[in-house]
Design a protein around this nucleic acid. Structure first.
Lengths: 351, 351
DNA sequence: GACACGTAGGAGAGCGCTCTCCAAAAGAGT
DNA sequence: ACTCTTTTGGAGAGCGCTCTCCTACGTGTC
């Protein structure tokens, strides 16, 4: 036995070898492995034993050559690479803990199915093309796309190239592509209701970038809800979903309305920045100013005080994205669908 | 022309089609594409034109079936999944901005070479096996491994399975595997020298977990450097490299030595936590207590005050990892090598 | 002009797998 | 007992590519 190829040595054991060892044909071994059609239980057992003793591992390339499936999916993080003054360094986006949660949700769903995502960052147009080529080369069966910017052309390119894809968040332009999203308006209303219930009368808001649907909807949802509570005018300052932009926006708000006692900040990273600005101006949170964030990212609990925030069920959404993509890959003609998730208010100490 | 397969329709254009269009053989087209051997410039031009007009895209599966290369590499984030009381949720690790930088460095190096990493999380032994199987199926040519825990068995498993691999940070057990690392002792000395130069006399340290080489080296490096400055005894509290463990360790240190005026915290995330504890106890930073972190992660600049910290050239190290892995894939017999990077002190406001 | 030599292109044999087609065997209905 | 269906295993044709031969054709040498 010692001259035998050990199972750990670079596997050049093929189906043919297993078939010979089991005394059956290649077809039968293939059927046992793929669990297709009926195979006599006794033969199945023999084949399984042969697979174990030979240490056979299927060759992925050969399989996908004939099935025309790679069994891989791409996770594309796309943006315009113009995150304020930040360097457009790939992986920069992971500074936002939100992406960690997206990745976690996707992996949780995919891993039990034996799929591991291929990570791609696409900041520039040149790289968009490269990503597209990669996908068309058959390196992945489909793509999960998380855009950081509204003007992202990739969703459209993906649709045109007929690459199965699912987006996180509704695309800015109306195109036939599946996506998941959270009900931003409902989340903003949750924040408004909470602030009013806490007795706050001079409320303001730090919005996200208004060219992004999420930024837009959170703002209008908040303003509408406040209007329903009788507050016709609510000051707002626009931020860019980053820590520093939140801090700067809060500064502007304090200049405009020094007497404010409540603020809704459109994401936690900005809220963290807002907290810094408030402290700098001697405001106590929540005594002087109540702060409500959005996302329930890990930044929310890292803050002092911990943030009251609107919980985006990111992991569930990411899992659903993966589920939808798999369905699209399974049935190529499937029409685009969307799924909107309900947010939840998580009450902590900041409001 | 309108009945022709349009370039954007699911590519079933093969080498054969291109060869026919160019009036040459399949071999010649292959040679042009792979730039191997001499091909008449005129014919090359004809072939390129044919490729463009047919919209040909090479089939990756077919190619890797014969070359026995996938052209893919795996990025494995491995740990024991017992990060304190945190849930072992995949992607959890991305809460640490450090990983974002690792990913960024890897992608920066790999992307120009047309390679996109396959992301895998391996928290449990069961998943280690799954990852190994995946690798042996030929889903990737090699692996880049970032462990969060010292007891990680994956490096050894990878070596045994003869999967080309490179680690981020020296393995706890001595095994023949390539790695990159930072000179932790030198970094800790930088911190000690700076604290002493700033005139601090009652210095303490929050160390990382002592079963991790990085935690160990940073502590001993710091203690040795302080001893060289005449400080025989330096109190220390052990943390777990997380925000909360840093806060807790700082609390303990303040109980043991209320009069301390300087502290070296073994990573920025813990330093951020330490800042919270110090503020809670009414200490001003840097006036009352000078704080030096380690890593120069984005947490360092998000803090108030911004952290003076030891910069780990993470992106360079990650890029080097990828370079080493490609070399190992290129020359399978290549002996394991390591590369140690020098850290740099980044002076901000905290010390 | 006969020979060797170097170079460019073509032919064709696989790489390891899936899957359709067939044949053989087994059961069902009359 | 015969035909008709159903079940189960084998044969073999590719999937699209690379790469090793092999042939044809200059070019150089004596």
């Amino acid at each position: 036995m010692r001259q035998d190829p050990s199972p750990s040595s670079g596997s050049s054991i093929t189906l043919e070898d297993v078939a010979r060892a089991a005394g059956v044909s290649r077809s039968t071994v293939s059927r046992v492995i793929n669990g297709i059609r009926n195979v006599d239980p006794a033969i199945q057992e023999t084949v399984r034993r042969a697979i174990a003793t030979t240490g056979y591992v299927p060759n992925h390339a050969a399989r996908s050559l004939v099935t025309r499936r790679t069994g891989a999916i791409a996770l594309v993080v796309s943006g315009a690479g113009s995150e304020g003054a930040d360097a457009p360094f790939p992986g920069q986006v992971f500074a936002d803990p939100f992406f960690g949660r997206v990745v976690g949700g996707i992996v949780s769903f995919l891993r039990p199915r034996g799929i591991h995502p291929i990570l791609m960052f696409a900041e520039t147009a040149e790289i968009h093309a490269q990503v597209l080529t990669h996908l068309r080369h058959g390196n992945a069966d489909g793509a999960l796309l998380v855009s950081t910017h509204a003007a992202d052309p990739l969703p459209r390119l993906l649709v045109e190239a007929r690459v199965p894809a699912v987006l996180f968040a509704r695309p800015a332009e109306p195109i036939p592509i599946s996506y998941v999203d959270v009900d931003h308006r409902a989340g903003a209303k949750l924040a408004a209701d909470h602030l009013v219930a806490r007795g706050r009368r001079r409320v303001a808001t730090v919005s996200g970038p208004l060219d992004v649907p999420a930024g837009q909807s959170r703002l209008t949802g908040f303003l509408d809800a406040m209007a329903a509570h009788g507050h016709a005018y609510v000051p707002h300052a626009e931020g860019g979903f980053t820590h520093h932009s939140g801090e700067a926006a809060m500064e502007r708000l304090l200049t405009e309305q020094p007497g404010l006692d409540g603020v809704f900040v459109a994401n936690d990273l900005m809220a963290q920045g807002a907290l810094v600005a408030l402290r700098h101006h001697g405001r106590r949170v929540p005594e002087d100013v109540a702060v409500v964030g959005f996302d329930d990212s890990s930044a929310a609990t890292a803050c002092r005080p911990p943030l009251t925030t609107v919980r985006h069920p990111v992991e569930d959404m990411a899992g659903e994205m993966a589920r939808m993509l798999l369905a699209h890959i399974e049935q190529p003609g499937r029409p685009a669908t969307s799924k909107i998730f309900d947010p939840v208010l998580v009450v902590r100490d900041s409001a």
